[in-house]
Design a protein around this nucleic acid. Structure first.
Lengths: 93, 93
DNA sequence: ACATAATGTCAAATATATTATACATGAACT
DNA sequence: AGTTCATGTATAATATATTTGACATTATGT
């Protein structure tokens, strides 16, 4: 586990985006650490956005474009629904 | 089949969005007609956007937000990957 | 012939996503 | 103590998505 993770108390950036009555959860952070602790900068480079964008999406500050969502899933080689999920439930699968 | 469909020759709006080397296909039009020929206006109302937005997304003029993508899938009661697909292949399944 | 409904399109305005730059913090290391 | 790395945050600028309002076309029905 690298530097920033151990002190991140998931305060502002919980990975849950509320919009209307529904929410979008994402597992980007987990996928990054599972993928040899890939850094936010590395992920940003691989999907062709800036680090700030990764921070915002991972922290669910806003809803990314579908194109970027697909590229993130592509990087981790998983289907989109294993990165983002819609509804009230948390990620369990 | 209602009015507009029979003369639409799929000229500008092919439902395929190219970005970078990859593409995003969508089946919104098919899903609409399968769903009792739901109109663009009806779909727009149900996902909370304007008709022009539905036209643009259906015609793949740009990449919608993930939130809207999820709401579209929700309306048709299918998983997201049955509405939008990423990559070179067309929809077959 | 006329009206209506569904769609495609266009241009300008607004909202939101994304970038660019900069600074702060804690962990790991020397 | 000092340095580096990964992260969180903030603000202004730019790009893109979405809205608003309007108009054209074709099909369907009267």
């Amino acid at each position: 586990m690298s530097a920033a993770e151990s002190f991140s108390i998931d305060a502002g950036s919980s990975g849950v985006l509320k919009l209307g009555m529904n929410t979008i959860h994402n597992r980007i952070r987990k996928l990054r650490f599972d993928a040899d602790e890939m850094t936010q900068q590395e992920l940003a480079d691989r999907i062709g956005v800036t680090r700030q964008t990764v921070v915002a999406i991972e922290g669910a500050k806003y809803s990314p474009s579908l194109a970027i969502a697909f590229r993130i899933a592509e990087v981790f080689a998983v289907p989109l629904d294993q990165v983002f999920r819609y509804g009230q439930e948390s990620f369990t699968g």
